[in-house]
């Protein structure tokens, strides 16, 4: 179990003036599974390569259990990185691929064989040790790459986009496999992804990095309920933003006054709420209720998406198809905002 601290880690590539990673500081609990989330080019892979020792940092530090590792060679850090495209050595069979790290540590052949067979059981690929990488499916290759990393019992495991090359039905299987192995072996694991869904389903904590800077570091649900700013909210699929000002537990805007949670910030800000947390009714309720007109209605199978106008503001709502069965485009309805679903971000 290893506690990882990243302290003011910065990377400026030669020939560039803008940092690719700017003062990143996060604490990663030992044995946890943490996602570095951001669009491509945000600096997340750079971070991972610096932790692995495959790229040198410009400044800052990385410590494992309070000991800096930055002067260690990559092979001595106890960090293993699993690349997105698996990178199984093409001329080695599965046995030699998985056993590679042990061979580098001069473990004897018999033991390597033994441990590879055990590892193959763990990743649910029994009896495939003689196959060549190109004879495996994408999902199998991924599991071999994972086994190859886990067999050396790293202190820290780094995964690059672990689910993104997989079909939808394999994603959950792989997610469970990664979670189970990571939990049972207690390996502190960091993965990078550009896909917020991947981050949310897999991680204990998510660090959102935009343009080389850490935006927010929290549990996954917080990014939906209490995003730190509009860019963060938008990254997580937020669509509803209303300008106004927050004062004494109320948010005042051009479309009305809304009661908001006490912990919200004060002053000029942006009100946001998830499309799925809005209630629709035919009559005005007592709290946070406004009249809205349906301007578009799209049936999506298990849910219905509505585009509504409140005066000049346009908002998106996701409703239960049964609730809005009889409403049509052009009809006026009431919408209620439960105070606990509202959140105010700085402008």
């Amino acid at each position: 179990m290893t506690h990882v601290s990243i302290k003011k880690l910065t990377k400026i590539y030669p020939g560039s003036t803008e940092p690719s990673l700017d003062n990143l500081s996060i604490e990663i609990e030992s044995g946890s599974l943490t996602a570095l989330l951001g669009p491509s080019g945000c600096g997340k892979t750079t971070t991972m390569k610096m932790i692995a020792g495959l790229l040198s940092q410009t400044s800052g530090d990385v410590t494992f259990d309070n000991i800096s590792i930055l002067n260690e060679k990559p092979e001595n850090r106890g960090v293993v990185m699993v690349f997105q495209n698996h990178l199984l050595f093409p001329y080695m069979n599965v046995l030699d691929n998985i056993g590679f790290g042990l061979k580098m540590r001069n473990v004897d052949k018999e033991e390597i064989h033994q441990r590879v067979i055990e590892m193959l059981e763990l990743v649910k690929l029994p009896k495939l040790e003689k196959r060549m990488p190109k004879e495996l499916s994408g999902g199998q290759q991924q599991r071999v790459a994972l086994a190859r990393a886990l067999i050396v019992q790293p202190k820290v495991l780094l995964l690059d986009e672990p689910l993104s090359n997989l079909d939808a039905h394999l994603r959950f299987e792989m997610r469970d496999l990664i979670r189970n192995l990571q939990q049972s072996m207690g390996i502190t694991t960091i993965f990078v992804t550009h896909d917020q869904e991947e981050a949310v389903v897999l991680a204990d904590k998510v660090a959102l990095i935009l343009d080389g800077k850490l935006k927010q570091y929290d549990e996954p649900d917080v990014f939906y309920k209490r995003p730190i700013d509009e860019a963060t909210a938008r990254f997580f699929g937020g669509q509803n933003f209303i300008n106004g000002a927050s004062k004494n537990g109320l948010f005042e805007s051009s479309v009305g006054k809304f009661k908001i949670p006490e912990i919200c910030m004060k002053g000029k800000g942006i009100l946001t709420f998830r499309p799925e947390n809005i209630q629709i009714s035919n009559s005005k309720s007592t709290l946070n209720s406004v009249k809205a007109k349906i301007i578009e209605k799209i049936f999506l199978g298990t849910q219905t998406r509505l585009k509504l106008s409140i005066d000049s503001e346009i908002i998106q709502v996701i409703a239960n198809p049964n609730e809005v069965e009889n409403t049509e485009t052009g009809v006026e309805i009431f919408i209620n905002f439960p105070p606990s679903s509202l959140w105010v971000m700085p402008k």
């Binding site: 020792g53 495959l54 790229l55 040198s56 060679k73 990559p74």
Partner: peptide
């Protein structure tokens, strides 16, 4: 690989 380049 990054091995910091030494003078040598």
């Amino acid at each position: 690989m990054i091995e910091k380049p030494t003078l040598l």
